[in-house]
Every structure is written in C-alpha cells, then in structure tokens.
Computed example of a mutant assay.
Amino acid sequence: MTELDTESRAAQVPDPDEAAPSGTFVEALAVEDDDPGLFPGDTGVLPFEARRVLALLLQRRYLAAADHPVEWKALLTHQQVVSSRLHDLFVELVVDRDYEIAYKRQVRSDGLTIPVLLKDEPYKRVETLLMLFVRNRFRQEQGAGQAAAYVDAEEMADYALGFLAHDETNLSARRREIDNAVAALARERVLEEVATGRYRILPVVEILLPVDRLRELTRWLHGADEQAVPAPQPDEDIAASPQEADE
C-alpha cells in the first residue's frame, strides 16, 4: 500500500473529537440484545409457544390435539427443538399424527447410567379389567363407523364384578375398588366424563393397549384364574411425569 493510499483511507475515518455536521444524526449500534425475556432473569431461548408445549408435556401424561388444538399446532411447529430439550433430560418425544397424540417416554440405553424421571407402574387388577373392556368397546364403535365411543359406569362395574371369586362376600369393598379404578382412568384421561356416570372413551386407549397386547390379555382372561389378572404396563409411553413420579 502506498503512502498516498494510507493518507486517503485515514482521511475517510472521522475524528472522534470532531463534532458531527449540523443536522446529522449518528446512530449507535446495539452491542448486545436487550431483550428482557419472558420474566425477570429469564435466560431461556425458546419462544413462549414452544416453552408452553414443553411444560405441558412434562406436566401431563400426554398432549392431545382435541384437548389442546393451539398447543398441538405449536408442537408440530417446534417439534424438533422440543424433542431436543427432552433429550437433554433423557426423555423421548413420541408424536402420533394419526391419533394426534404426543407423549413422552423414558430413554433407556445399555452402557449409560441414566436418572429415571418417568416411573413404570403397572395398572392395578381392576384397572386392567376396565382397560380391556373400554378398549374393546372403542374398537366395536370404530368398526361400526361411530365418531366416538361411550361407556356407562354401571357397565364397567358389572364387567369387573363378573371376574370376582365365586365366594366373594365383601361386595361393597369391591364396588369401591371399581369406582376408584374408574376415577383413576378418568384422571389418566383414558375416560372423559360427559355426564354423571357416562364416559367417552378417549383415543389414547389405542396406544395404551395396542391390538397385539389387547389380544394377549383377552386370551389370558378367558383361560386363566381371575384372581391373577396380569396388569399391563402403561407401555412407558404414557408413563408418569417427573412430578407424578414423586407422588
């Protein structure tokens, strides 16, 4: 570079001590992003919609488009980053677009010591019986072309009572057990009460009891001692959230 070039380039650099010409404005460039975040001290990087979906997935057993259409749309938009955040916790995101249900599943890998956030808890005996009953009803109504499947509490009670031992005498205790099982399936969002004693069977039952598992348990029930009904695992895909695991 020649001396003349150096002088010319230097002449183009404004003198910091020299006042700007009258009527001109020198805009200061922002050194860093002054975004205050969603709350004081917020260091998160996800937009609100993605954070809300992530929180709901951690809070609930599953997220259904029918119950949360706005959040379902946000999940599909931010699926990759939400899945990545769950992977940071050794949890997988499963999105079933056919049934429009999303749920989480505990990661398990040989050679890795992983803190388990999601518990694997089998359903109780009566809950298993009712799961089989409502799953069969759901399939029947689907096969008949019905948009939704419904079941009454009395139908479920009669079905479960039919598996009691012949010498059972404490029927009131068994009825309480059945009522508690119905309430548990309602909390799990397998059933939705639409009127007193009347329930809609939610599509998640298809995931909890896939066809092969349904057939296996049905065959077992028709050929085994009713006192030893094997409680199906909740397939870990609808396993409890970290909050539930501490209860």
Results as ranks from 00 to 15, higher is better:
I238M: 10
L208W: 07
F163W: 15
E226W: 13
P234K: 07
E100V: 05
T113Q: 15
A147P: 00
E226M: 03
A149L: 02
K124G: 14
E216H: 13
A153K: 13
M131P: 00
R108D: 09
A240K: 08
T113P: 00
R200M: 09
P115T: 10
F163G: 05
G223T: 15
L171C: 02
L202M: 15
K104S: 09
Y150H: 12
E193L: 01
A144H: 12
D179Q: 05
R137V: 07
A147D: 11
E192S: 12
N180D: 14
Y150F: 15
S172N: 05
D120I: 06
E100K: 15
R108G: 09
Q227L: 10
V204G: 06
A240I: 07
A240T: 10
F138G: 07
P203M: 05
I207N: 00
D167I: 09
A183N: 09
L185E: 10
M131L: 15
D235P: 03
V204P: 03
E193P: 04
L221E: 09
A102L: 04
K119S: 13
Y150I: 01
I178Q: 02
S109C: 11
L129G: 06
E127G: 05
R175F: 02
E193D: 02
R174A: 14
P115K: 12
R213A: 13
P210T: 06
E121K: 10
V151F: 00
E141N: 07
R139S: 09
P242L: 08
L161A: 11
G145R: 08
P230K: 06
A181D: 06
V205E: 04
Y150D: 00
R135I: 05
L191Q: 12
H222R: 10
L185H: 14
R189L: 08
V151D: 00
L164R: 05
A153S: 14
T218D: 13
E141G: 04
R135W: 08
L209F: 14
R200P: 03
A231K: 02
A157I: 12
I201L: 07
E168D: 12
R187H: 13
G143Y: 03
A153H: 03
V126T: 15
A102D: 02
E192H: 11
D158S: 12
R175A: 12
G223A: 13
S241F: 02
E127H: 04
N180Y: 04
P122A: 08
D167P: 00
D110C: 00
L118V: 08
L117Q: 06
V116W: 00
